[in-house]
């Protein structure tokens, strides 16, 4: 499922679309990373990268990231 559509909770990243890989990888998010979706708004979301990383991303970016509940 797409990151932009999931409810708050813990997920593992399954796939990242090529188009955004450069941006997302530079944030430390890769396939297999464990993240916690903490806050969601209609346009943005705040995720915690385990163990240490608090990242805000726009939903336009989150729709390119496939996740699965942990």
């Amino acid at each position: 499922m797409k990151l932009c559509e999931v409810p708050e909770g813990e997920y593992v990243i399954l796939d990242i679309t090529d188009e955004v890989k450069l941006v997302v990888y530079q944030l430390g998010l890769v396939e297999g990373s464990v993240i916690e979706v903490e806050i969601k708004t209609p346009t943005t979301m705040v995720i915690n990268l385990k163990p240490l990383g608090r990242i805000g991303i726009s939903r336009s970016l989150a729709r390119f990231v496939e996740v699965e509940p942990l």
Partner: peptide
């Protein structure tokens, strides 16, 4: 302009 990803300090 696309995407914004920002570490929140």
């Amino acid at each position: 302009s696309g995407y914004l990803a920002i570490t929140l300090g």
